[in-house]
Design a protein around this nucleic acid. Structure first.
Length: 484
RNA sequence: GCGGGUGUAGCUCAGUGGUAGAGCGUCACGUUGCCAACGUGAAUGUCGUGGGUUCGAAUCUCAUCACCCGCUCCA
């Protein structure tokens, strides 16, 4: 018998107890929405990222990797739209404390005011929630991007942003990759890295945090072929999750409604996981968007606006983006197809996954409490072997008769090939359970028989069954079982 | 942002004004012969944080921080 995770809290305390995830700045009372990965969590998350990289870069001929800086030219975010989108003014109704975008508030005649900037502008506006007229606070800017100052000398420092997504770094390097790697359309660029967003509301443990890690792909294809690539990526990404152990019944794909789409998007789906927040809730793990040539064309505009930005005191907020060149299709970010002798701006498919969300989903899906025949409970993380923080524990059955020596020798050999753990403390049953809680797939035990015939037992985490094999075969046995 | 709840040992929690506790876990020693064995011993507390009331505060009070649940929001 086994049961699935019911309350997120149970996972949170197990994660703390076993060193997967801690609250950030815990000894100072914590910092909202920030979390740290402990010894086991750091291994797990890195394994998730490695598994993603392996399938999106290593095993594909049409993908290359990238690792760019978090700080970028401020005009990158002007071109991407983030500077303007994130500069919305929001006013709060003093009566009911509902916050609404100032330029969305309407008066009795239904009129809104473009660029409403002060409480005066809102004197006739009606709160959409409680109907109160003109009781608004001074509109405040909603800063969804983290800002910081670049330059130690206060006089000539400028405002730069911590990236709110890794995607724009890919677009900004698209030309460099084309010129340095001999890739040809269709091809994609993958990147893993930290991003930062001042979310209005954070949520549920590491699910929505202000600092988070993304695993993003921009796949460039010829206009007209975007639909087939969109389908291919949807399938590739779904099967990635299930091939690493996510149960299919906990995973689904949700198509965005037409009115949910950005104006430039041709389609968008979310890969969602059934998380145990509250009563159980489908939440986004990854978004896959068909984004046309919008981003590259925007950056062509951005590239032409840099002088204006300098003349404008290096302020991206108040520097308008130059209009698109009439000859944009032949611009600096266009692609020349040697075979067809055509020049065009590639279309883009963007599979964008959250590394922390993914890690959380793998934790939730692997979390199992089993009731054994003797009535006792067993906590076990049934991670896919590739994701398990520790691959094998090496255990002498008892601490005598040269068992620890033999086990240590085996451990010292195996740890060169697999993340291993050696433990000779406490009874064997307890040590098995410790490894179950860490999600270790195999426990290798050196027992009395090892002295007689050089065999050891290998215990399977999920079945608790044992194989007896020769000590010399442990490495190849694990290699095969772990697919490493 | 609003409303509700919680915060005491690593974890789960008891403790309602008078010496800070239990179970589990951890560590040491002994024992050990395959699924959280047993014995003996030990360590670990800014009682989330800061102020106030009081002779005395984990307990009453104010503020604050964090987490959970439900709304709201989600580029």
């Amino acid at each position: 018998m086994s049961e699935k995770l019911q309350k997120l809290e149970d996972l949170v305390s197990l994660c703390k107890r076993r060193g997967f995830i801690f609250q950030s700045s815990d000894i100072y009372g914590g910092l909202a929405s920030c979390y740290d990965y402990g010894p086991l969590g750091a291994e797990l998350k890195r394994n998730v990222k490695n598994a993603w990289w392996k399938h999106t870069v290593q095993m594909r001929d049409d993908m290359v990797g990238l690792d760019c800086s978090i700080l970028m030219h401020p005009m990158v975010w002007k071109a991407s739209g983030h500077v303007d989108k994130f500069a919305d003014l929001v006013a709060e109704c003093k009566k009911c404390h509902t916050r609404t975008r100032a330029d969305h508030l309407a008066d009795a005649q239904g009129n809104t005011t473009e660029g409403a900037k002060t409480a005066e502008d809102l004197i006739k506006k009606i709160c959409p929630k409680c109907g109160t007229t003109g009781q608004f606070t001074e509109p405040m800017p909603f800063k969804l991007m983290f800002e910081t100052q670049m330059g130690a000398n206060a006089d000539d420092s400028m405002t730069v942003y911590l990236r709110p997504e890794t995607a724009q770094g890919i677009f900004a390097n698209y030309r460099n990759v084309l010129d340095s790697t001999r890739v040809k359309v269709p091809f994609g660029i993958a990147q893993i890295g930290k991003s930062f967003r001042n979310e209005v509301t954070t949520k549920a443990f590491i699910f929505r945090t202000r600092e988070f890690e993304q695993m993003e792909i921009e796949f460039f294809c010829k206009p007209g072929t975007e639909e087939q690539w969109f389908e291919k990526w949807k399938e590739a990404r779904m099967s990635w999750y299930t091939s690493y152990g996510i149960r299919p019944e906990n995973l689904r794909m949700r198509e965005h409604d037409k009115d949910e789409l950005a104006h430039y998007a041709k389609g968008c789906v979310d890969i969602e996981y059934l998380f145990p927040f509250g009563k159980g809730d489908w939440q986004e793990l990854e978004g896959i968007a068909s984004r046309t040539d919008y981003d590259l064309r925007q950056h062509q505009r951005g590239m032409r606006s840099v002088t204006n930005w300098i003349e404008n005191g290096r302020d991206a907020v108040t520097t308008p983006l130059k209009a698109e060149d009439a000859d944009w299709a032949k611009g600096p970010l266009s692609y020349f197809d040697e075979e067809t002798r055509e020049r065009y701006i590639p279309y883009v498919i963007e599979p964008s996954a959250g590394a922390d969300r993914g890690t959380l989903a793998f934790l939730v899906d692997a979390y199992t409490v089993e009731t054994l025949e003797n009535g006792e409970e067993r906590n076990v993380f049934k991670f896919h072997p590739s994701l398990a923080p520790i691959k094998a524990a090496i255990l002498p059955l008892v601490k005598k008769d040269r068992m620890p020596e033999k086990a240590t020798n085996l451990y010292n050999d195996l740890k060169k090939y697999f993340p291993c753990f050696y433990d000779e403390k406490a009874a064997i049953g307890r040590r098995y359970r410790r490894q179950d809680e860490a999600g270790t797939p195999y426990c290798v035990v050196i027992d009395g028989q090892t002295n007689d015939d050089n065999t050891v037992t290998v215990r399977n985490r999920d079945t608790m069954k044992q194989d007896r094999i020769n000590i010399d075969q442990v490495k190849s046995y694990l290699r095969e079982k772990l697919d490493m």
